[in-house]
């Protein structure tokens, strides 16, 4: 078990280093950050001095080495644009992104699983067919478009909900800000979280439906019915339970995706999270923020993957047998 975890950890380190290297290398070709840091009249000498003092003239490997070493200590340098520590900027935005992702994940599960069960059980019904058609739209429409459509309908035409931002937030523990405790904060959460959840929701729903249909055809369900168990017990105690194993796996992995893909939703709704910070940084060629964001997202994925792997190991005896060979 310890050897397994150690092996996993080692792999994770390699992955993190690779991501850091790719991110860092890529950003060198995004453009010259100096142009975004100065105004139209700034002279060449001043620009050159700035480049020198930022260390932009050092060899690539020196710049990367400096970056990797500092990153390990949680120091991602100073943002070129805001002239503040990147770690501080990211920490300020973390709560916004995590709250949005959390609400979206809950929404996707709470709505997605029952809908999946329903469409599987009543697979021939009109309502099920309608839901399936809608879910196809949910999977295929781009997030950007869904967001804009929701804004138009609920923000501009009906004027029920705010079109942008996070509303009023409350500070807890000094650095975590929450929108859960104010009316405007909750109202502001509705549209972005739906937008972000729709893809995951339809995915989970279709997954549950497919798995459920499969399980309902298996022998043990038939036996359960033969035993005269009521439908409810068969559907929820036997069938659904067996369906949920792959669903939990997918959901775990999708949690990382939710955080990472919040970029689009955040920029459509001007949601002040990490994704928005990243997108803005790309436009401004703010390399320290971009690099830190990519490394952080990679870190989330690595951690989630590792947890899932370890869970597998604990749950599935076959893995243990393989490792012994």
């Amino acid at each position: 078990m310890i050897a397994f975890i150690f092996k996993r950890l080692l792999q994770s380190v390699v992955v993190m280093l690779t991501v850091a290297l790719i991110a860092f290398a890529m950003f060198r070709f995004v453009g010259d950050p100096v142009n975004n840091m100065v105004g139209q009249d700034t002279t060449d000498t001043e620009r050159a001095q700035l480049a020198e003092s930022l260390g932009l003239n050092d060899p690539f490997i020196v710049q990367f080495g400096r970056f990797a070493f500092n990153a390990m200590r949680g120091d991602f340098g100073i943002s070129y644009k805001y002239r503040r520590p990147v770690s501080e900027l990211i920490l300020e935005r973390l709560s916004a992104t995590l709250e949005l992702s959390f609400v979206s994940a809950v929404l996707a599960l709470v709505v997605g699983i029952p809908l999946g069960v329903y469409t599987a059980l009543r697979s021939k019904g009109i309502i099920s067919k309608g839901i399936m058609v809608l879910s196809l739209m949910g999977v295929s429409l781009p997030t950007f478009l869904i967001g804009i459509l929701l804004i138009l309908l609920f923000g501009v035409v009906l004027r029920w909900l705010p079109t942008f931002g996070r509303g009023d937030v409350v500070d807890i523990y000094g650095w975590w800000t929450t929108g859960f405790l104010t009316v405007s904060g909750l109202k502001s959460l509705i549209l972005p979280s739906i937008t972000l959840a729709i893809f995951q929701l339809t995915l989970i729903m279709r997954l549950v439906r497919a798995e459920m249909l499969e399980v309902l055809r298996t022998d043990f369900v038939k036996f359960a019915r033969a035993r005269g168990l009521p439908d409810r017990a068969v559907h929820f105690k036997h069938a659904l339970k067996n369906t949920l194993v792959p669903v939990i796996t997918i959901t775990g992995l999708q949690l990382g995706a939710l955080i990472a893909f919040a970029i689009i939703t955040e920029s459509v709704f001007q949601w002040p999270g990490m994704g928005l910070l990243f997108i803005q940084a790309v436009a401004d060629v703010d390399i320290p923020i971009m690099a830190a964001y990519l490394v952080l997202i990679a870190f989330f994925f690595v951690v989630i993957n590792m947890v899932v792997d370890i869970l597998y190991y604990a749950v599935d005896p076959r893995l243990r047998a393989d490792a012994a060979v």
Binding site: I148, I151, L152, G155, V156, R159, P162, T163, F164, G165, S267, V268, F269, Q270, L276, I279, Q280, A283
Partner: peptide
């Protein structure tokens, strides 16, 4: 003052009266 990067969101926020 709120920075809004997306032009469509900016215009929607004005039209909605926010």
């Amino acid at each position: 003052f709120t920075p809004i990067k997306e032009a469509a969101t900016r215009v929607a926020a004005l039209v909605s009266g926010e």
